[in-house]
């Protein structure tokens, strides 16, 4: 139990640091701590295989690529430059959307009897999830996901959705200053022309 809370504190703290840190490399390092703590959490649940795979796949492969890209793109040590603050403009629509989503979730969840299994689902007791030999089984995992752990599951889905939209917003050309896209190529071609002329 002490171990669980120690790991949980590390997990939450490193997750917060990942988001709050302005330097991308610090974010990655704290995400690394987060992944390893998560793997340790799996170990304490007797799910050694999931724990090891967590490290091999996420820590050993995916996060290394993060480090690689960050090292290549922003070899300078300073944090990324901040864009214009657009929070005031989108605050009201975002609040409305969040409240609406929250409302739908609450409505939906209150209509599902949490913690009870439909009669046709036969599994070991849901309370055993987390004990040896039960944790990994797909049936139990799915049953737990849609009954006792429905709320975390829905919230996770929602957070992933936010992340996807965030990537689209950050990655789209609209966030770059509009003059940027038009001026640079012209300048380049002009430079090229002048170089060509000079060569002639």
């Amino acid at each position: 139990m002490i171990l669980f809370f120690a790991l949980a504190i590390v997990l939450v703290a490193s997750a917060i640091v990942t988001i709050v840190q302005k330097s991308p490399v610090y974010s990655v390092v704290s995400l690394l701590v987060n992944f390893i703590a998560l793997a340790a959490m799996y170990f304490t649940l007797n799910a050694e295989f999931i724990g090891v795979i967590q490290i091999v796949v996420y820590t050993g492969a995916i996060l290394v690529l993060f480090v690689f890209v960050i090292a290549l793109l922003s070899s300078g040590i300073g944090p990324f430059s901040e864009g214009p603050d657009r929070l005031p403009k989108i605050l009201v629509p975002a609040l409305v959307a969040t409240l609406a989503a929250f409302g739908f979730l609450t409505y939906g969840l209150t209509r599902v009897p949490l913690g009870t299994l439909p009669a046709h689902v036969t599994t070991s007791t849901v309370g055993d999830v987390g004990k040896a030999n039960v944790f990994g089984s797909v049936g139990d995992f799915g049953a737990a996901l849609f009954t006792t752990h429905l709320l975390p599951f829905e919230v996770t889905a929602f957070i992933l959705m936010v992340a996807v939209i965030g990537v689209v917003v950050l990655g789209s050309d609209a966030t770059i200053a509009p003059t940027h896209g038009t001026h640079v190529p012209k300048k380049k071609s002009r430079e090229r022309e002048s170089i060509v002329k000079a060569a002639k």
């Binding site: 490399v25 390092v29 690394l32 390893i36 793997a39 050694e48 295989f49 090891v52 795979i53 490290i55 091999v56 820590t59 050993g60 492969a61 290394v64 480090v67 690689f68 960050i70 090292a71 070899s75």
Partner: peptide, 23 residues
Amino acid sequence: NAGILVIFAITSIGVYGISLAGW
């Protein structure tokens, strides 16, 4: 039980030492 997997998992974290040192 998953000895070989554990070794691969631990050594795969070792890359961070080198890449973070270089950065």
